[in-house]
């Protein structure tokens, strides 16, 4: 594949094609206007959103959908903050009714300090959701065995963490991420833990189909500029992966020919 035809290099999730491989969150921004500008700069086609109670005391408060158009972006409702399968399933049923979309991001948390996923609960609720017709993109640990089980029960994308949510530590376990990529026939996206552009590029160079991030953009000093940097990093990492990197060598190998030396 040449660099030119990476334009036709789509990420296909649950039968839908996306030309952007960068999914961005919509949390932690100063306001929805900055959020919208960052999503635009990121070139994102999918944005994650949370489901929460409406503000009854001020129904005229700004709403996300007034700034980020669900006709322009694919809204990916998440279950952030859910610690049981029941809460996660209940949240996504409401999300489907609010938006009418069956593509969702499942995350069932196991611990408040690490925000590590509770994998038995994640597996159980993923099964329930898939039976109800949801297309489940699943936040998971970087354990290849768990990832395989999630794929086997029908998840449409496997999304292991690079590092804890909001930590910005980058890909901590490239060996496991690589194993998950090699064994999976559905898209694998690194979800959580990216801190800066090189982290996103590393995930893509490993062969990830995409990257999902929120804090790395929202908490940058200039979120819109960081969003653009992330767009470039994801494209660069993808192109480098498709291009196929040179082998690593222990010692030097001259770039200029030795023949004809004076």
């Amino acid at each position: 594949m040449s660099v030119d035809n990476t334009k036709d290099d789509f990420m296909t999730i649950a039968g839908r094609q996306f030309s952007s491989r960068l999914i961005v969150g919509t949390g932690k921004y100063v306001d929805y206007a900055e959020n919208a500008a960052a999503a635009e700069a990121a070139g994102a086609e999918i944005v994650t959103v949370a489901v929460r109670r409406v503000n009854l005391s001020d129904p005229s408060a700004p709403m996300l959908v007034d700034y980020i158009d669900p006709k322009k972006y694919t809204f990916l409702p998440n279950t952030a903050g859910c610690f049981t399968g029941e809460d996660a399933v209940r949240t996504l049923r409401l999300a489907r009714e609010a938006g009418g979309w069956s593509l969702v991001k499942l995350e069932v948390l196991g611990d408040e300090k690490t925000l590590y996923p509770n994998m038995p609960e994640t597996l159980r609720s993923a099964e329930l959701l898939i039976k109800e017709g949801f297309d489940v993109m699943v936040y998971c640990s970087d354990d290849p065995i768990m990832a395989k089980q999630l794929e086997d029960i029908g998840c449409c994308a496997i999304m292991p963490l690079a590092a804890p949510i909001g930590s910005g530590l980058g890909v901590q376990n490239p060996i496991n991420i690589r194993m998950i990529i090699e064994q999976s026939s559905v898209p694998v996206l690194v979800d959580a833990g990216v801190g800066t552009a090189s982290d996103a590029a590393i995930a893509m160079e490993l062969g990830c189909d995409g990257v999902l991030m929120n804090t790395a953009i929202a908490e940058a000093k200039n979120p819109v500029l960081m969003a653009e940097a992330m767009r470039h990093a994801v494209i660069a990492g993808r192109q480098a992966y498709v291009a196929g990197r040179m082998p690593k060598r222990q010692y030097a190998d001259p770039s200029s020919p030795l023949a004809g030396l004076i």
Partner: peptide
């Protein structure tokens, strides 16, 4: 009361004394 009310049933679904309602929407999230 923990059951989704489809949009098509907003008009016909009657709420009575003691009912519990949750009303949610999308907000920013990661």
């Amino acid at each position: 009361n923990l059951e989704i009310v489809p949009k098509s049933a907003y008009d016909s679904q009657i709420v009575v004394q003691g009912d519990q309602i949750e009303i949610v929407h999308f907000i920013g999230g990661g």
